[in-house]
Simulated scan of single mutants.
Amino acid sequence: MSTWYEESFGKDYLLVYHHRNQQDAEQEVKQITEWLQLAADDFILDLCCGTGRHTATLAMEHLNVVGLDLSPTLLSKAVSRNQPYKIPFIIGDMRHLPFVGETFDVVLNLFTSFGYFETDEENEQVIREVARVLKPKGRFLIDYLNREYVIQHLVAVSQREQDGIQIQEERSIQDDFVVKKITLSDKQRGERTYTEKVKMYTYDQMIDMLHRNGLRVKQTYGGFDGISYHQNSPRMILIGNVG
């Protein structure tokens, strides 16, 4: 039986998240570059790179970057849109990275690409893998949801249209997971439904998980605009290094 993340990240995902544009990626990479002091000799892993918006932006800045994702559909889009930059895009599971230890200077994990798995052990395995592939003093940035913000600002149901397709999103909190049911409907393909399910860890839980695996958080932001992290900030962006 397929998992939700194996089913959801296909062609319909590109429609549902059509609003994620290159301009936003460029602004975010500008901030990431400043926060992490990215340099030309850094070797960067864009972990769960999706269609490669951020990967391409890093390459445009003449930075050495590799993109990894589990979805063949999203990686195919990434390869086709980023041909000029000759970026290596690799299919892989973030719990079992296909790299030897101490390979990367920087690992980026953007847009809540963490907490996808049912068990804490599997989610922590991702952190272990990030620590394993980072060089000594290597840096990381994890752009994750802010649990309290999600709970307080949850929109139960929303509807919209994209390219003639009706999209309905139903959101709920189930135990420690935020769950989104996405229903798409059009005349050509009829109705189809996907589910997204992400574990909502607290700040303290994330810090503990990172520290247990040799990763030290040096700074936390509440968004890519540089606001401080607090209970009501939209995001939890954790920045640190091995050590």
Rank of each mutant, 00 (worst) to 15 (best):
S2R: 12
W4T: 03
W4V: 07
E6W: 03
E6S: 07
S8C: 03
Y13S: 02
Y17Q: 07
Y17P: 02
Y17T: 12
H19A: 09
H19I: 00
R20A: 10
D24V: 09
E26D: 12
E28R: 06
E28A: 06
E28L: 03
V29W: 01
K30P: 00
Q31M: 15
I32T: 11
I32W: 05
T33K: 14
E34A: 15
Q37N: 15
Q37P: 01
L38I: 09
L38N: 00
A40Q: 13
D42Q: 08
L45K: 01
L47G: 01
L47M: 13
T51V: 14
R53T: 00
H54G: 03
H54S: 05
H54F: 10
A56R: 09
T57S: 13
H62T: 12
L63N: 04
G67W: 00
L68S: 05
D69A: 06
L70D: 01
L70Y: 12
P72Y: 07
L74T: 03
S76G: 10
V79S: 10
N82M: 04
N82A: 13
P88V: 08
I90T: 07
I90E: 07
I91F: 01
G92R: 02
H96F: 14
V100D: 13
G101F: 08
V107Y: 07
N109A: 14
N109R: 07
L110E: 07
L110V: 04
F111E: 07
T112E: 04
E118A: 15
T119S: 15
T119D: 12
N123R: 04
Q125F: 11
V133M: 08
L134M: 11
P136M: 10
K137Q: 14
K137G: 01
R139T: 04
F140K: 01
L141T: 08
L141A: 09
D143Y: 10
E148H: 13
V150A: 10
Q152A: 15
V155H: 08
V155M: 12
A156I: 12
Q159Y: 09
D163M: 11
G164K: 05
G164E: 07
I165N: 07
Q166Y: 11
I167C: 06
Q168M: 13
E169M: 12
E170M: 13
S172Y: 08
S172K: 15
V178G: 00
V179I: 10
T183R: 10
D186A: 08
R189K: 12
E191K: 15
E191G: 00
Y194D: 03
E196F: 06
E196N: 08
E196S: 04
V198G: 01
M200L: 15
Y201E: 06
T202M: 01
T202V: 02
D204V: 03
M206N: 11
D208W: 01
L210R: 01
H211P: 00
H211M: 09
G214H: 08
G214N: 11
R216E: 14
K218A: 12
F224K: 02
D225L: 05
I227H: 13
I227V: 14
Y229S: 02
H230L: 08
Q231F: 04
Q231E: 14
N232L: 13
P234D: 05
L238S: 04
I239H: 05
N241Y: 05
N241S: 15
V242I: 15
